[in-house]
Design a protein around this nucleic acid. Sequence first.
RNA 1: CCAGUCGGCUGGACGGCCGCUCCCUUGCGGGAGAGGAAAGUCCGGGCUCCAUGGAGACACGGCGCCGGAUAACGUCCGGCGGGGGCGACCCCAGGGAAAGCGCCACAGAAAGCAAACCGCCCGUCCUUGGACGGGUAAGGGUGAAAGGGUGCGGUAAGAGCGCACCGCGGACGCGGUAACGCGGACGGCACGGCAAGCCCCGCCGGGAGCAAAACCGAAUAGGGAUGACACGAAGCCGCCAGGAAACUGGUUUGGCUUCAGGCCCGUCUCCGGGUCGUCGUCCGGGUUGGUUGCUUGAGGCGUUCGGUGACGAACGUCCCAGAGGAAUGGCCGUCACGCGCAGGCUUUCGGGCCUGCGCCAUACAGAACCCGGCUUACAGGCCGACUGGCGAU
Length: 136
Amino acid sequence: MTGPAPEGCGSPQPDRLRIRADFVRAAKGARVTARAFALQARKRESDALEGARVGFTVTKKTGNSVVRNRIRRRLREAVRLGKTLPLRPDHDYVLIARREALSMEFRALSRELERAIQKLNDPKRAAAGSRPARPT
RNA sequence: CCAGUCGGCUGGACGGCCGCUCCCUUGCGGGAGAGGAAAGUCCGGGCUCCAUGGAGACACGGCGCCGGAUAACGUCCGGCGGGGGCGACCCCAGGGAAAGCGCCACAGAAAGCAAACCGCCCGUCCUUGGACGGGUAAGGGUGAAAGGGUGCGGUAAGAGCGCACCGCGGACGCGGUAACGCGGACGGCACGGCAAGCCCCGCCGGGAGCAAAACCGAAUAGGGAUGACACGAAGCCGCCAGGAAACUGGUUUGGCUUCAGGCCCGUCUCCGGGUCGUCGUCCGGGUUGGUUGCUUGAGGCGUUCGGUGACGAACGUCCCAGAGGAAUGGCCGUCACGCGCAGGCUUUCGGGCCUGCGCCAUACAGAACCCGGCUUACAGGCCGACUGGCGAU
């Protein structure tokens, strides 16, 4: 049971997703692709937590460990700095990196992330059975 | 100055805003935070668990000139031998071929035990061609390799048959801890090569790894105790079912093996240990997850001493990442360096300098229990020692 949503919509920093089972579950949710990444999102059932959670996946295909680390850090920073991102507090998000996330300009990366989340929030796309409307 | 050999170091700096992990603190706040290879996971150890009861033999694997260093090594240091380079220096699968087996392709008459294809010489026959018998191994030819080489003597032709020098073997002597080096009586020459084919000799070695291992602990299966029942049982394969997996259950649906014992602990011997039916009840179990292991160590730095050196000793001083879908960063500014383009100046034609603009995780690359090595990757920069040229004094 979630408490009252924090006032002012200044969303708190999302938690990291760390457990394999969470990643597997999120993979069954809705999916949107961009040039630098693919984004998956799924509403959590039986929710004892509050606040959105975000995980990152960088596969070995994208490069060696130096490249993978850098990509993950850039994506993480884009999430952290994007305070106005319309993340839903009862959802889990997973960002799957692509190679372009390494060389793309950071501002463009942030824009892509915002657009991808908006797309997921669009009620027409919300096929996963989550009620889209959120007050404020 | 040019060319080269060897060794070592470095591999962005400063600042601003916003963050991450760990530690200290009641709190404000403060401190620390990737590499020389963190890489490949190729060797050697520490540590953990299992096995280890013992002993020996066998098997298997690794190493292989000598001496030293080291916790240890396949690493390092100093020598020796062989090969390459004008030289500094570099390279080496470098024990044993009279313990034994095996192999030596092609070519060649012949490839390891002595033989003879073309030849050469002598004798006999005969139509000067040639045939047969014998001697011989200098010459030709083949080959990676053909029973020493060159010269003289010698001879029917020849041959270590004889001699000289060289090569080879070599009792013994001297030097060296040793590998080995120097000398060498004597031997008329025999003992070809391959051990990276098997092998022999010497030395070393139990297995698996932090996803080790310990603790806390949802569900499923297993486990222990006890009671009842049963006496052919056990193991392997296959099939079916459950589980995310590890694994578990069923099998009169089938096949195979073993025997009153079977199977496992590398094999064998003596010997030891573990394990092996169904159902009920009770105890209890430990996978996902969490905590520990987790960073003070063959530790770093400095000085002195010993040693040719690898390295060792003493003293002083410091605490230096601990993540776990994995922190150590993101963005921006200035500068240095580099690269590209354009323009200008200069040149001993290799290049050098200046200005402007652009690019720039600056190269290779990211700790994952910890050490010692090896190997591989690496833009650019710096330092030292030495060698060979050319020039100047």
